[in-house]
């Protein structure tokens, strides 16, 4: 379902929804970047073409989350669940690639074998309002991985900005219910213009890479040594990735804490015995590429990368994973 709505009216709807929902959206902090934050003043919403530093992943898979706590009751150990936050939320301004990232995380945390109640609770209580991209960044490569600047996969609503009037594509029943009395329908000419605009957005990203079907044959290649030499083993790429989901379990103050961890860190695979199977940078960097473009594909039929470009944009030493993958098949093992 398509509707046209003015920016002012959209802000009014959001304000009226504040009574029942927490509203989260992008805000620009000068010289620091764009960050998703709870918003009460809709004027502070960022409607530009820039991309948030952190993806919306953090609202579903929390950077650190206490899972349960232990206590003694008359000398007996008792474990208590910690209460889940149930309040409803709307996240607005989500880029299509980030929403696709969530559908990939669903495959892991909402699988038949295992359902993660924390993640699922966060998914169930959130409405995702996307924002189609008009000017992809030089690091973007979503179209090489099945995404698109106008993809609506995983979204409840997708907004197309155009001057002061927005075209909104309403995708799910939940969103239809909320927006049923808002905006107006499109005329035939407007629908035509929108279809053209959509096509234009789809074609606005020229940078494409070849993603190989499997990387098996080059596992032992020297290539990994070459491409990982400048890696500083920090957590920027994994923490800012909309699809990386590795975590560490820590005991703190009688509570079990789950927090982000990343395969680039040296101690990620450090075993209690003192053995570390991925001691060298090449092994750790290779793991990241293989998990995304080989192992995950073998398990779930898709790459674990949405081409959002964050790891390229924010890498302190400008390692470019798109280039690494694109060039990989050419290297003889």
């Amino acid at each position: 379902m398509l509707k046209i709505i003015t920016k002012e009216d959209l802000h009014k709807i959001l304000i009226s929804l504040l009574s029942g929902f927490e509203i989260i959206g992008p805000r620009e902090l000068s010289h620091k970047g764009i960050f998703y934050e709870p918003i009460t003043d809709m004027k502070s919403l960022y409607w530009g073409e820039g991309f948030a530093t952190e993806p919306v992943k953090k609202f579903f898979l929390s950077p650190s989350e206490y899972l349960f706590k232990g206590r003694y009751d008359n000398g007996k150990e008792v474990l208590d669940d910690l209460p889940l936050t149930r309040n409803k939320r709307i996240i607005i301004g989500v880029r299509p690639c980030e929403a696709i990232g969530l559908t990939l995380l669903d495959k892991v945390f909402n699988a038949d074998e295992y359902k993660d109640e924390f993640y699922l609770n966060n998914r169930e209580r959130t409405i995702l309002v996307g924002l189609s991209c008009l000017k992809p960044d030089k690091s973007c490569f979503c179209t090489s991985l099945g995404g698109s600047p106008e993809s609506n996969r995983g979204l409840d609503v997708l907004i197309f900005l155009g001057g002061n009037e927005f075209i909104i594509e309403i995708i799910t029943e939940t969103a239809k219910e909320i927006l049923k009395n808002s905006g107006r329908d499109l005329s035939q000419a407007e629908t035509k213009a929108w279809e053209l605009d959509r096509k234009r957005r789809k074609e606005s990203l020229n940078y494409r890479i070849e993603v190989p079907e499997s990387l098996d044959k080059i596992f032992e290649s020297e290539y990994w040594e070459d491409v990982s030499r400048s890696c500083i083993s920090c957590g920027v790429c994994t923490f800012l990735c909309p699809t990386c989901h590795c975590f560490d379990l820590v005991d703190e103050k009688r509570k079990k804490l789950r927090c982000y961890d990343g395969c680039a860190f040296c101690d990620f695979t450090l075993e209690a015995s003192g053995v570390n199977p991925r001691l060298a940078k090449k092994e750790r960097y290779r793991q990241r590429v293989f998990h995304k473009f080989d192992y995950f594909k073998k398990n779930f039929k898709e790459n674990l990368c949405v081409g959002c470009g964050r790891c390229i944009r924010f890498c302190p030493v400008k390692i470019n994973i798109a280039e690494v993958v694109d060039k990989a098949p050419l290297v003889k093992s």
């Binding site: 620091k32 950077p63 920090c234 957590g235 923490f239 927090c259 860190f265 302190p316 030493v317």
Partner: peptide
Amino acid sequence: FRCIRCYACRQI
């Protein structure tokens, strides 16, 4: 508050 503990500051 915004720190994500990526330790890029330490690693670089």
